[in-house]
Simulated scan of single mutants.
Amino acid sequence: MYLLLDIGNTREKAALFDQGEIRTLSHLTADTLKTLPLAAVYFACVADDSRLSALQKRLALDHLPWHQISSQAKAFGVTNSYAEPQRLGVDRWLGLLAASRLYRGQSVMIVDAGTALTIDWLDKEGNHLGGWIMPGLRLQQQSVVQQTAKVFNTEPIDAQLLPGTETVSCLQNGCLAALTGAIRQGWLLEKAQVLVFTGGDAPSLISYLPDLDISPEPLLIFQGLARYIDQ
């Protein structure tokens, strides 16, 4: 049994990988892990080193090997498009690795809707065709509020694909339109046969794109991590 960790900018997500199966962990604490027969930890981290160190200490798993996965020029039949492959975000790299196994022989457009929203394209031969990065739904709104004097926002987000009639709805609806518009524009490029969504905001965004044939893959990043174990 292996512990899989996706350490993001705002939080960490965890799962267990055992005999080909992935099961998410809702509570990541030393108490929840201490009775498990763990062999090693495989993790991806886009946060800074101090956050990683604090997590390692909190989980009390110093006795296990920790394997950090980084983006590569090529692995498992997937070729990175970056001239400096290590600069591709590891979460994007893992999404490509997972998609290449899940949709073997098909071209894929991967939307990862988190703090940032990323779109990546993978052709049917496993070549990464490049991608886009943009602020996610909340980050877009925060940016506008922080950089302007008279625009404000409320929580929770209740966006609609309609014109707003006061500042909050104008902001929220506009940011939603920007993201869904980018996704539609990406799909219109006709570089993929399959449209895959993952990330925390994926369920919400999918609901605003009912006409698109979307394959939700909430475990995509963990499936990419598992490729380094289940080769």
Rank of each mutant, 00 (worst) to 15 (best):
D120Y: 07
E84I: 14
I221D: 01
L16Q: 09
T29W: 10
D120C: 07
L38M: 11
G186L: 00
Q56K: 15
G89E: 02
I206P: 03
A202I: 01
G8W: 10
N9Y: 06
R138E: 00
N127G: 09
Q68P: 05
Q72H: 13
D62G: 15
L212M: 12
T24S: 10
F76R: 03
Q142R: 04
A14T: 14
Y42C: 10
H63V: 12
Q147P: 05
Y82T: 10
S169I: 02
Q140N: 06
N173W: 07
L16C: 11
Q185L: 04
R138K: 13
R87Y: 14
L88M: 11
S207H: 14
L5F: 04
C45E: 09
L220F: 08
R184M: 01
A60R: 13
I183F: 00
A40C: 08
L161P: 06
L4M: 11
A182H: 03
D18V: 03
V108D: 06
L94Y: 07
E217P: 09
A83G: 05
A15Y: 05
L64I: 06
Q86I: 12
A60L: 12
G186E: 00
D49A: 15
T35Q: 14
S71Y: 07
T29S: 13
D123I: 03
Q223K: 13
A47N: 14
A83H: 10
D201P: 06
W66M: 07
T24H: 01
P156Q: 06
T180M: 00
A30M: 03
R87P: 08
L129V: 11
G126C: 12
R104S: 15
D201C: 04
E155G: 09
P216D: 00
L38T: 12
H63M: 10
L5A: 05
E166M: 01
